[in-house]
Amino acid sequence: MKTVLITGADRGVGLLCVNCFLKDGWTVFAGQYMPEWKQLEKTKALYPKQLFLIPLDVSDTESVKRAYSAVAEKIDVLDILINNAGIIKDDSYESVLDTFNVNALGPVRMVETFLPLMDKGMKRLCFVSSEAGSITAAHRTDNFAYCMSKTALNMAVRLMFNSLRPRGYTFRLYHPGWVKSYMSGRKSEVGIYEPEETAVCAFSQFVGDRGWEDALVLTDVNNVAWPF
């Protein structure tokens, strides 16, 4: 059975990705950041042998290390790592740092901590980024903290790609579209896509192979490429 770890899996895009992988028969490690939110536990009851809940705060190095130990106790090989956890905050200097820590540095922590489990697997690294990180497409006049964090993430993925692509790793950089998710704290009423819709597309991009793995491309929920 193939294995996947998904960060920020309590709700929104992450949770719906968990469902897609479970339905397809994968062993899923779901990063749980908010244990008070019971959705993952309900899913666990449906897939008790396939789904493992792993406490995980991607902004906390010790938490990431503990998550690694918990996963490594159960499996020798992790096929796919999906960096989905993300936050949005105001534009104070503290928020610039907090958002960077979760959205950009979180994936760096995750990748380098979990690499030892990935070398013998499918070697696929997936990152949920955003159009908000595209400098070319940037249209906003504020939202500095969030946009800068996603641009920083795209750059970090480029550096990882330069190192790891020659070692056989493949990369997915995904923009889920404008999703009715929980980023503002509660389920958004505005947005274009339900988390289910974008998760289905994410799943097909994350597991499917491409004939152009040597190119790093930001792709969206409509399979359209975005400029950096």
């Binding site: 960077f100 950009a104 990180g133 400098i135 940037a138 500095f144 946009c147 800068m148 964090s149 641009t151 920083a152 795209n154 750059m155 970090a156 480029r158 550096l159």
Partner: peptide, 11 residues
């Protein structure tokens, strides 16, 4: 360094 410069471009 790289993440800083890319973020400043966005800024």
């Amino acid at each position: 360094y790289h993440m800083s410069l890319a973020s400043i471009n966005m800024m």
